[in-house]
Amino acid sequence: MGNPSKITEGGMVYSLGEFDGKQVEYDFSKVLTYMEAKGKLLFGRNFRLYHEDHKVLLKLCNYMVRDRTSCLEQGIDPDKGILLSGPVGCGKTTLMKLIRHITPHYKPYKVIPARNIVFGFNHVGHRIIEDYGNGQYFCFDDIGVEQMGRHFGKDCNVIGEILLSRHELFLESGLRTHATTNLNAEELEERYGKRVRSRMRELFNLVAFDQNAQDKRGTKNTDKK
């Protein structure tokens, strides 16, 4: 496995903590330094992390590195997925794309916009639901504001159906699913119904930005949802 506490980016080696040969003792300040550097490579030189978001970042970091003790102290079940919520522009999509890079020794998830999945359903039908209800790792981005799917004249709540399938996978094999949303719990229930909302509680840990979190898109950081 090598040393998972060290990551090389752009010819520089970043240390995320201390590795004793069995596990890494992560240093949050070092992880943030690496994330700043990786963020600039991914999203452009204007990217930066915000001090106001450190509470959310700490939860996400502890979750990604599987620090079970810290997760439980913060009310996070490390065996569930993450539902990252917050207002438009606060940085949800960017963080979910970025945070997976601090643990390159784990299998990464793919970040897929919910609207793209619905577009796919409109073209090919229920095969799309099967494609995303499988054993791969996904983060469904911006759920709850996508259009209703429609194929051959029949409407389908595509993301709702996929979440039901992912819940079954979670119960069968522990496969985790992640998502981002601008909506609150009541809005999600209105969009997907009580049954799906109930499954979402079992499927996800809710990690939320403050509702007054600033819109960071004006800073020219790429893809700040």
Rank of each mutant, 00 (worst) to 15 (best):
N3M: 07
P4K: 01
F43H: 03
C139M: 02
K59W: 10
D131N: 14
S29W: 08
D53F: 06
F121P: 01
G153D: 10
D141G: 05
A37G: 05
V124R: 14
Y14W: 10
A114D: 01
T8C: 11
L164E: 11
K224M: 15
G44A: 06
G11M: 03
Q211P: 07
E190W: 13
K220L: 13
A37L: 02
K92I: 02
D79E: 15
I129F: 04
R115T: 12
Q147D: 15
G11Q: 08
K22Q: 14
L60I: 01
G81Y: 00
G10I: 09
V124N: 13
L49S: 03
Y14S: 04
M148D: 09
N221E: 15
K40I: 07
E73Q: 14
L83M: 07
A37P: 03
K30Q: 08
I129M: 03
L58S: 14
R48H: 14
K224E: 15
L98M: 05
E172K: 15
Y109K: 00
I159Q: 01
Q211R: 15
E36T: 12
R191E: 08
A37W: 02
L49P: 00
K92S: 00
R176S: 05
P4F: 05
L206F: 15
Y132G: 03
M96W: 02
D20C: 07
L57T: 04
D131V: 12
